[in-house]
Computed example of a mutant assay.
Amino acid sequence: MTDPRDDDGSADAFSWDGDDDPTLVSGGRSTPASPDLPAGFTAVGKGSDRVRRSTGERSAPGGAESHDVAESDGARRGADVALVALGVLAGVYALYTVGWIVGGMRLQNVAQFLVSPLASVPAVWLAVLAPALWFAGTIWFTRGRPLWQRFVWLIAGAAVLVPWPFVLVGTVGT
């Protein structure tokens, strides 16, 4: 049986037609007349002129809000760039971990002539874990600090933790 409100008699379950039908009953939820929006967010779309900022002021449609939108777009772009840069540095640290694994395995034959295996095995494991520990420690200890400090520490770690055994010898050299 079809709904008499359908014009052509076919009801499509994936259609949004009829959502503005005045005979539809709301699910019992009442929405506030003017919801508050947290600071730093911008309401867009239908009904965005009724949304207030968390300070209690109504957002001005047009002129006054356009400056805030430009600032939030710039901040969003900066956050996007920071996220991509953080991902690239995380990849560098992951490659450093692999480099220390390969380099440490290559050094085990040479290290047994210089140092006891009791000392060289923990040193190799510490070298393998150092990039991950540096990355996690930098993220942890720079939580409340400016973003540039986090990147300074991550770049410094990328310079300090280079897997020299892998860089100098590689996977096939002696």
Rank of each mutant, 00 (worst) to 15 (best):
A119K: 05
E57A: 15
D36Q: 13
G62Q: 11
K46G: 09
L24T: 00
A159L: 15
F41A: 14
L95R: 08
R76V: 06
A43S: 14
V152R: 12
G157L: 05
W16R: 07
D21K: 05
H67T: 14
V25E: 11
V124T: 07
A13M: 12
V115H: 01
F141I: 06
V51A: 11
T171V: 07
W153T: 02
P146A: 13
A159G: 12
G40S: 10
L89E: 05
G56L: 10
R29D: 10
P35Q: 10
R77Y: 13
A132Y: 09
D36C: 10
R143T: 08
V115Q: 00
S34Q: 14
G157W: 04
R52W: 10
L147F: 03
S59R: 15
T97K: 05
V51C: 09
A11M: 10
P131L: 02
L89H: 07
L107H: 04
R150Q: 15
V69N: 14
A75L: 15
G91C: 05
A43V: 08
V160W: 12
R150M: 14
V162P: 03
A119N: 04
Q108D: 01
A85D: 10
V88Q: 10
A82G: 10
D3E: 13
F14V: 00
V44P: 05
D3T: 01
Y96D: 08
V69L: 14
R29N: 13
D7Y: 02
P38H: 08
G40F: 09
S48C: 15
P117Y: 02
V128A: 01
L86K: 11
A43I: 03
L168C: 06
R143D: 05
G62R: 14
S30W: 09
W140M: 08
P165I: 01
V169I: 15
D12K: 03
F113G: 09
I155M: 13
V69R: 14
A70L: 12
V84C: 09
A94S: 09
V69T: 15
T2H: 06
V51H: 06
A158H: 02
G74V: 09
D19C: 02
L129Q: 10
A111P: 00
A13K: 09
E71S: 12
W164V: 13
A11H: 12
A11K: 06
A39T: 15
S120N: 04
V25K: 12
F141C: 03
W16Y: 08
P4W: 00
T97R: 02
D12F: 03
S26G: 15
D6Y: 05
S72R: 15
L37Q: 07
S120Q: 06
H67K: 14
L86H: 11
L126N: 09
I139Q: 08
G47V: 00
V88E: 06
L114Q: 01
G78N: 13
S10I: 13
D6W: 09
G27K: 08
V25P: 01
